[in-house]
Design a protein around this nucleic acid. Structure first.
Lengths: 246, 246
DNA sequence: GCAAAAGTGTTGAAGGTACACCCATGT
DNA sequence: ACATGGGTGTACCTTCAACACTTTTGC
């Protein structure tokens, strides 16, 4: 049956062409490192595996790429199926393809990283997963397969991205205080930032719109709430402006 | 036969496990964007395809990943087999996996970028290729498949890498003049650089060793020849130094 | 001596870092 | 009134960009 499928695919061109190659092929998967924002930690979305290998172990959400869907579509589908989330930002990280990384057989996984606004996404487990939940990034259990290495690479990538592209805003609620933004940067970069300098730089970019609203219901002076002005960002980008924060 | 192979692979674990998935799988390939340095241009290594589809068209060297080799090993093997080159730097770019990118069937390609020192590598054609040769990057023929998009992504990546990591030196001969280095940066970045400022910055990093030799046999004042001090770079990196040029 | 590229410093502007106190609110 | 985090400006230093002429060699 599988062989028959391949033969059909091989005959799809305008004239008969040989099947692309004769050898057994690696399986192709996607895995997603999904970041969210907790109270005072960066969080990571994990699923508890229901099947061997590594049944009962926590792992990155992911699965196999279908023959008729793009790689990114596969990543989004698996995230929705396995964990019930659909991120705003989802990009490729890189392929992980060591020969022994899956004990069943050769599986090459194209790792992705994604950001979701924590509040909107109550994860729910589904296909192949007993459970799905958030863990603080640095209080996560040891992961199945080579997923610890994938997470490490994704964290490194996030640290770079957040400084050069306005992706941090995709972790925050639509409206946020400058302190929340600064805390996000401190969590991601793993070091404290100077309050005055941080605010100066952020505001100097003129990408934050002051909503005029205050965050009441807090037991101290209520902070101003800002909104990231994506339209302004895209306009400025076209004019050669380069985002840079810390 | 192919199905039998898969079944064997599925039974390889410590206890019987189901085959990872039942569906037809995408084929997995690698493609390599290999940069070299010409007299006054950046050059790109291309192969002329011998087989359909796109027979007679120029394309990136590449091919299918074997089930028992890592992705990078596949890229190096294909480069050696198809074009007879073996680069010093070879890194993943990203996967290209649009459903229609190969007319035969679904093929996901993991693109790589690589740097070789031009002189050392006379390309020679082999497997599946009628010819292999260097083209000036911006005088290249239109490429097969989606390879033009892959090249564009690789150039963009190279532009970033060269500013933040000392990869440029892997395009130059072991010993080079500051003018050669500057010309390389100008080619990659696509803009002229100020001679005095460039030299000031390069030398301030203290990563170039003055060989004391001069490049004779040139019809003007002979330039000093420098060597990139990789050991010093690695020592400084461990101490937190960050390479940055332009 | 002429052509060709090598080599060399200074100045002004901008941006980065360090740093401490008062303010508005809830309890 | 006190606890909690919100909000603000300046001075110094480093870094970056702009800029032109003299030197050495081959022919």
């Amino acid at each position: 049956m599988r062989a028959a499928q391949h033969t059909r695919a091989g005959a799809r061109g305008t004239r008969p062409m040989a099947f692309t190659y004769e050898h057994p092929r690696p399986a192709l998967a996607v895995d997603c490192v999904v970041f969210g924002l907790g109270e005072r930690t960066l969080e990571l979305l994990l699923v508890e595996r229901d099947l061997e290998p590594f049944a009962g172990r926590w792992a990155l959400p992911g699965g196999f790429v279908r023959v008729d869907e793009s790689i990114d579509a596969a990543a989004r589908r698996e995230l929705l199926e396995e964990a019930g989330v659909s991120p705003d930002v989802l990009e490729q990280l890189r392929a992980f393809g060591d020969v022994g990384r899956d004990p069943r057989e050769r599986v090459v996984s194209i790792a992705h990283w994604a950001l979701v606004r924590g509040e909107r996404h109550r994860p729910r487990a589904a296909t192949d997963a007993r459970a799905a939940r958030w863990f603080p990034l640095d209080a996560r259990p040891p992961l199945a397969f080579d997923h610890d290495a994938i997470v490490a690479a994704a964290v490194e990538r996030l640290r770079v991205e957040v400084r050069w592209r306005p992706v941090g805003f995709d972790l925050l609620p639509e409206v946020f205080s400058l302190t929340e933004l600064q805390r996000l940067y401190e969590m991601v970069l793993g070091r404290p930032l100077d309050k005055r300098n941080f605010r100066k730089k952020v505001l100097a970019m003129e990408l934050l719109e002051d909503t005029g609203r205050l965050d009441e219901g807090v037991r101290h002076r209520p902070p101003r709430l800002y909104r990231f002005d994506r339209a302004a960002y895209e306009r400025l980008s076209r004019e050669g402006f380069a985002f840079r924060l810390e």
